[in-house]
């Protein structure tokens, strides 16, 4: 039997949706996050699971929010880029990237939230990823501006920041 209501947390807050009234049963998670909750850091592009721009965290793991139904998030924790501030080690590493030879970690910034969340998912599982592991983890994301060198370096720096905090 179809559920009448679903409930999931988004960035720590409970969200309840009545199916058929608040959202349709086939509504994509990305649509609900953007249009119902105004979380525009969730970007919509290919809608085919190819670009990674719509990435969010589901129970801490990265998912493509345009490729899943909102009802499938029932009872789970959704985290979007809006949950993070500039003190976050991953976000701050992206923001600060200006190391000679690496450029910056973004140009237009359209894809950036997806990369940040993917990096979070990676570093939560692997605190010291090798460069190849970082590349592999990020390979589901397209940055047409081509800022991959800056992005990879930012993830390396974020990992170092996290390890530094843990050492203390």
């Amino acid at each position: 039997m179809e559920k009448e209501k679903i409930c999931f947390t988004v960035n720590g807050e409970d969200q309840v949706f009545e199916i058929g009234r608040d959202i349709e049963s086939d509504a994509r998670l990305s649509t609900v996050l953007r249009e119902k909750l105004g979380l525009t850091g969730v970007r919509i592009s290919c809608e085919q699971g190819a670009c990674g721009a719509c990435t969010v965290l589901l129970d801490g793991k990265s998912v493509l929010s345009c490729m899943m139904f909102a009802v499938d998030a029932d009872g789970r924790e959704v985290t979007t880029i809006e949950a993070f501030g500039e003190s976050d080690p991953v976000a701050s590493s992206f923001i600060e990237m200006a190391e000679p030879g690496y450029g910056t970690a973004m140009q237009c910034g359209f894809c950036t939230p997806g990369f940040v969340l993917e990096a979070h998912a990676l570093l939560s599982e692997n605190a010291s990823p090798a460069k190849d592991e970082i590349k592999e983890a990020l390979s589901g994301h397209i940055c047409r501006c081509g800022c991959y060198h800056g992005i990879i370096r930012a993830v390396e720096n974020a990992a170092e920041k996290i390890r530094e905090v843990e050492r203390r």
């Binding site: 970007r43 880029i81 993070f84 976000a91 992206f94 923001i95 970690a105 140009q107 950036t112």
Partner: peptide, 11 residues
């Protein structure tokens, strides 16, 4: 850094 790196990173 770019002047809008913060806003771009944080969506």
């Amino acid at each position: 850094p770019k002047i809008d790196a913060r806003e771009k990173t944080l969506g």
